[in-house]
Simulated assay, not measured.
Amino acid sequence: MQLVQMNDQEFARFLDRGIKDFALDKVEAGTWAEEEAEQLSRESYRRFLPEGLQTKGAYIYNLMHEVDGNVGYIWFNVTEHLRGKEAFLLDIVVEEEHRGKGYGKEAMAALEQAAAGLGVNCIGLHVFGHNVRASELYRKMGYAITDMTMYKELGR
């Protein structure tokens, strides 16, 4: 798996899709109301990518596989923290037609290699509770839970 820098046109598609997907995830998680979700998602993307592809510390790549070509994308930001230089995975997508082929695992390994090349000490990420497939992948890749919020819906 190779991480290949997006061009402006690819970034525009990434941004449009990412904003919509993040809004849907926040609604499904019960964090945002449906009517406010897209606006809040746009604000979040503006905060983390104020200069788009030129945002300092932001790394947005296509996931290029030698057999299937472009199979998705990955976005992480690198910042300084108490533990040193840290990468935080903000989004990763393996397209539906390419899932189940091990590309998620390959993408995470490529992330680790890229982050190490940037002098990163650790990688953090957030996963929505309803995304069981991703949670399982991250655990298999050696990620540990550092914080957990849980809710229980009560009968009405």
Rank of each mutant, 00 (worst) to 15 (best):
N7L: 09
E36W: 03
L15R: 13
F22K: 09
V27F: 02
D16Q: 14
I19C: 12
L24S: 10
I19H: 11
E28Q: 01
E36S: 09
D21P: 03
F14Y: 15
M1P: 01
F14R: 11
L3N: 10
A23K: 00
G18T: 01
A33V: 06
A29T: 01
E28F: 01
F22V: 08
F22N: 07
I19R: 10
D25L: 03
T31W: 10
A33Q: 13
F11W: 03
T31R: 08
Q9M: 08
L24C: 08
Q5K: 15
K20I: 06
E35G: 05
Q9T: 14
G30M: 04
D25F: 03
E10V: 05
A33L: 12
A29M: 12
F11L: 04
K20E: 09
M1E: 04
E35L: 06
L24G: 03
A12R: 14
G30L: 01
E35M: 04
D16G: 05
V4N: 02
K20T: 07
G30C: 05
V27N: 08
E10G: 05
E10Q: 15
A12H: 09
K26Q: 15
A33S: 12
D25P: 00
Q9R: 13
F11H: 03
I19Q: 10
V4P: 00
F14A: 07
A12M: 10
Q2C: 06
K20W: 11
L15H: 14
Q5Y: 09
G18F: 07
A29I: 00
Q2F: 10
F22T: 08
T31G: 08
L3M: 08
F22Q: 06
F14E: 07
M6C: 11
A33H: 12
F11I: 00
T31H: 12
A29W: 07
M6Q: 11
L3G: 12
K26P: 02
K26F: 02
K26V: 00
W32A: 07
V27H: 06
T31A: 14
D16S: 15
D16I: 01
M1R: 05
K20N: 06
A12C: 06
A23I: 02
L24A: 15
K20D: 07
E35Y: 01
N7H: 12
G18H: 07
L3D: 08
K20A: 09
R17W: 15
W32D: 10
W32P: 00
M6A: 11
Q9P: 03
T31F: 13
E36I: 05
A33R: 11
E35K: 05
F14W: 13
L15M: 05
F22A: 04
M1D: 04
A33C: 07
D25W: 06
M1Q: 05
R13K: 11
